[in-house]
Nucleic acid binder design. Structure first.
Length: 211
DNA sequence: GCAAGGATCTAA
DNA sequence: TAGATCCTTGCC
């Protein structure tokens, strides 16, 4: 069969994620996140991110200091911070900057590249409705933070997991992309800060008033 | 348009 | 300790 075209050899290094959070969030647009899960390769091109800064950012979980929930956000760069939102969904973040800082990049949407069958299966597991009624299409697999986390099988147990080697790593963008900027989605504090980055031409970004 | 869902924060 | 809030989604 085919050789899987994904290898951690050229994966982004610790240095990439140590930088200032909004720079990391912007530079992650076009990068490819790869996860080996149960012998299956899941991969997606990152098309939408948000930067959550340290103690000066009222919208960030780290704003009120370190707690059990946000502990992973204060860990070293290039590790996962996963949290539960609205009691139902999970959101996956990549920790940035220096250890103890409390900054991260939220992964909001990716374009599915590999493992689509598996993503579709994971996105359907909690669906009790008939498949024929509203079949999930490629665009709906990962176009939102909760959807992305579900498709890639992220869980609270994945907190602190490294993104620097198999089974989880990020490959740099293979071409330069024109990145658009907007306010972040779904927040009330610091709502005017331009810390959301996305590919304006991509049909795989999450549905929002900013397009 | 809004309910679901559970942890976390805030005001007493 | 009760009540509001929360980096969302999918069904009504």
């Amino acid at each position: 069969m085919d050789i899987v075209p994904y290898s951690p050899v050229n994966a982004l290094s610790h240095h990439f994620f140590e930088r200032e959070t909004s720079e990391v969030a912007r530079d992650l647009i076009g990068a490819v996140i790869v996860r080996e899960l149960g012998g299956i390769t899941l991969a997606g091109r990152i098309v939408e991110t948000e930067a959550y800064l340290h103690e000066t950012d009222a919208a960030s979980h780290s704003f009120r200091g370190r707690t059990k929930r946000n502990e992973a956000m204060f860990g070293e760069a290039a590790r996962l911070y996963v949290y539960r939102i609205y009691g139902i969904h999970l959101c996956a973040n990549i920790v940035t900057e220096t250890e103890g800082r409390g900054a991260a990049v939220l992964l909001r949407a990716v374009e599915p590249l590999a493992g689509l069958e598996e993503m579709m299966r994971r996105r359907n597991t909690t669906q009790t409705r008939q498949l024929s009624k509203r079949q999930l299409c490629k665009k709906q697999l990962c176009n939102g933070p909760g959807k992305l986390a579900q498709a890639f099988g992220f869980s609270l147990d994945d907190n602190h997991q490294s993104l620097l080697q198999t089974p989880l790593y990020v490959l740099p963008a293979n071409e330069p992309y024109e990145v658009a900027v907007s306010p972040r989605i779904g927040i009330t504090k610091a709502a005017d800060a331009l810390l959301r980055f996305y590919l304006p031409a991509s049909p795989f970004v999450s549905p929002s008033k900013w397009k």
